[in-house]
């Protein structure tokens, strides 16, 4: 496809290419490379210092737990709501479809504020009642999970919905006419067809979940070794002039996110909906 689309090369082609590469180099490539370089300035010292610091390891552990929960919730919710939006007709479908994107336009700080107003232990609308029932949300892990799930909510949906539209319903109908009920049709036909879009959506969600900062900062209370996540540790370490640990923790966070993206970009077939 690329060769068919390739244009005859003119001076403009090279100017554009140079412009784009230069822009991306100065904005992304070089700065990222410098962080990697700074992380390894003293060999593996920075990483070792960071990883032997209980504050850092506890935060990393909390981040991973929170991210996994948030991604799991978003995956189940995302697949379900995508199927409902694309395959079913119900009143308010258009409104719901527009509202789903809302979390992408809301400041993380506003997300934190919103969750505090709803689930805050003292002034929240539902917070006190839930705390009486023994469930603390704000300044505890459930609140951090909710904040993380909030900010990454649309990512899975945005990847799956176009693919569901694209594949149409014929394969699902064929499966039905061959005797497959709703569940086998989903597992054996629909899910394999949206597999790559789903994986990509999950990876984006994971990256976003690992990296959430603003919303978590407000909802978590930022207590070291209890409700402090990895991104909050980066801020604290940097401000405490423990820059080596800040860089090392950043590097680990970035590594997971970028590695997942790269692996998916490489593995994902160029055009997985192609066929006829």
């Amino acid at each position: 496809m690329a060769s068919r689309l390739a244009q005859p090369r003119t001076t403009g082609t090279y100017v554009r290419r140079l412009l784009v590469v230069g822009y991306l180099f100065l904005l992304v490539i070089w700065p990222v490379a410098l962080v990697v370089q700074k992380t390894f300035e003293g060999g593996l010292d920075n990483l070792q210092t960071a990883l032997s610091d209980a504050v850092v390891t506890d935060a990393l552990q909390l981040t991973v737990v929170v991210a996994l929960w948030a991604v799991a919730i978003n995956t189940v919710f995302g697949v379900g709501i995508s199927l409902l939006l694309v395959r079913y007709e119900f009143p308010g479908r258009g409104v719901l479809s527009a509202l789903i994107d809302l979390p992408l336009s809301v400041s993380p700080v506003v997300v934190g504020l919103a969750l505090l107003l709803a689930y805050g232990g003292t002034n929240g609308t539902f917070g006190p009642a839930l705390e009486d029932a023994g469930l603390q949300i704000a300044f505890a892990t459930p609140g951090i999970i909710m904040a993380t799930a909030f900010v990454s909510l649309p990512l899975v949906i945005r990847e799956i919905v176009p693919v569901l539209h694209e594949i149409g319903t014929e394969q699902e109908q064929a499966a039905k006419s061959l005797g497959a009920g709703a569940w086998p049709t989903f597992w054996r036909i629909t899910l394999p067809s949206i597999k790559w879009a789903l994986v990509y959506g999950v990876v984006l969600s994971l990256a976003r979940a690992l990296g959430e900062f603003g919303a978590v900062k407000i909802v978590s209370g930022n207590v070291a070794q209890q409700t402090q996540t990895a991104t909050l540790v980066v801020e604290q370490k940097y401000q405490d002039f423990e820059q080596g640990s800040a860089y090392a923790t950043s590097f680990l966070l970035a590594l997971i996110a970028v590695a997942a993206l790269v692996v998916v970009t490489i593995l994902r077939p160029k055009d997985d909906t192609d066929g006829d």
Binding site: Q171, S177, S193, K195
Partner: peptide
């Protein structure tokens, strides 16, 4: 009866092949 219980064979214009 839903489609899956009718025991009919259906062939679609655009094949509806299970691509995977």
């Amino acid at each position: 009866l839903p489609a899956q219980k009718r025991n009919v064979g259906f062939v679609f214009q655009h094949y509806a092949a299970f691509k995977h």
